[in-house]
């Protein structure tokens, strides 16, 4: 019974974050991913499978197994 519960509720998903394969416990929202990466409060932008996830939707946006996520920041450049 416990095993069955684990199978249903404690899924693990594989994401590609900034080009690197990573595994996370699901369910996982974009905002939770940002928190996992210690980027909460930082000025970042997030793209999921090539589409921008607006800041206002980060809390609602669920991430799925196989998603490609890019998280970017502004750095020095010319």
């Amino acid at each position: 019974m416990l095993l069955l519960a684990n199978a249903v509720f404690l899924r693990v998903i594989s994401l590609t974050v900034n080009g690197e394969p990573r595994r996370f416990d699901a369910p996982l929202t974009a905002a939770q991913l940002i928190a996992c990466l210690e980027l909460t409060g930082k000025r970042v932008a997030l793209e999921r499978n090539g589409e921008i996830v607006p800041r206002s939707s980060l809390e609602q946006q669920e991430l799925s197994d196989g998603d490609r996520v890019e998280i970017v920041v502004a750095v020095g450049g010319g």
Binding site: N18, I71, V72, V73, V75, G76
Partner: peptide, 17 residues
């Protein structure tokens, strides 16, 4: 400014540009 991937797990507390 340039737009680049965050360095995951590195320098989390460094000031940003």
């Amino acid at each position: 400014v340039a737009i680049r991937r965050t360095n995951i797990g590195q320098n989390a507390n460094e000031p940003s540009l």
